[in-house]
Simulated scan of single mutants.
Amino acid sequence: MTDIDERRLKVGVLGCGPIAQAAHFESATKARNAELYAVCDVAEDLLQRMAVAHGALKTFTDYERMLADPDLDAVIIATSDTFHVPAAMMALKAGKHVLCEKPIGISVEEVEELAEVVKRSGRLLQVGHMKRFDEGVQSAKAFVDSEMGAMLALKAWYCDNTHRYRVTDATQPLMVRSSAVKRPPSNPKSNLKSYYMLAHGSHLVDTARFLGGEIVEVDVRLRESFGAYCWFVDVSFASGALGHLDLTLRVRMDWHEGFQIYGENGSVLARTYNPWLYRSSDVDIFHEATATTTRVLGADGHFYRRQLEGLAASVLNGAPMAGADITDGVASVRAMVAIARSADSGRPVRLADVSGAL
């Protein structure tokens, strides 16, 4: 266990569903510089069980009442995607900092409106792209920024598999359910193309942007067959580097995720694991000058806890934000909408030209 800082961020979690139970409650109780101050959910049975299990000091069935608590510093928004933007806006207007699950929203217009609210609020909003807190990925980012020189090309892949629940059921806590939970107006899984892009494509897009920089255009092919979906995305980066993204669900093999980067002074090859294994990526960095390969070992693989600690460090100590901010969140949504438009039209689409939702 890490040492506990004397000064800690008081956090309230909105939503007691699976992602909160699997990731955010534990993160808030294990963080060195944050604490689980409050939980909020309309399902009282679920709320009380989670509060007792994780030691929250306060419980709320009304989100506005939680936000009105003067001792609350920040909220973690762990709800369905549809509720992300309105919940984040309410928190910011109440003077609270925000860590919101990815994707930050589902339409270009709503996330741009949220960006304006963030700007006016003077508060921090961090998007839950927790892979930025994978120490292996961070080692690749440091190499790209400091030693690699010009980037020639980046390839990245995210392929969920048919057997993933055998892994997650073994590593996650047994999920507690309630019939009283608040659900979105329509079932997100009724449109699997949209659901897969929002749930999984958001990770792939953010990893590509984190390592490769701004994406300006995408050219997409999509194939649907035997219940599987495969997006091959040719990417144009603002730097001039070439990119290729592979989002495939559900592959008949092991979880298959990683990236490869070709640069002027070296290269990177990474294998990323199912996040619920809490194992940092294996990232091999080849240094052209010394003809040697290096890899981070013994890395801290609790990405969800580390992202909360990153937000707390920014709020409490003024540390630069290490996670994805609202600008990254908007760019991610724009990229996903552009991918959808290109797949439908069969033509390249510039991110600056897209509007609407997935």
Rank of each mutant, 00 (worst) to 15 (best):
R7Y: 05
R7H: 11
V11D: 00
I19H: 07
A20C: 06
Q21C: 09
A28Y: 00
K30Q: 14
R32V: 00
A34H: 08
Y37P: 01
A38P: 07
D41M: 05
R49K: 15
V52T: 14
T59M: 11
T61G: 06
D62H: 06
A68S: 14
D81A: 12
T82A: 05
K102M: 04
G105I: 02
E109S: 09
V118W: 10
S121R: 03
V127F: 04
R132W: 14
M151Y: 01
L154P: 05
K155C: 09
W157Y: 15
H163Y: 06
T168S: 12
T168A: 02
S178K: 01
A180Q: 14
P185V: 02
S190P: 00
S194W: 12
Y196V: 12
V205F: 11
G213V: 01
V216P: 00
A228G: 04
C230W: 10
V233M: 04
F237G: 09
A270N: 10
T272I: 11
P275N: 11
D284L: 14
F286I: 06
R295A: 08
L297Q: 13
G298I: 08
R306K: 15
Q307C: 14
N317H: 15
A322S: 10
I326G: 02
D328L: 08
A331K: 11
V333L: 01
V337I: 15
L358P: 08
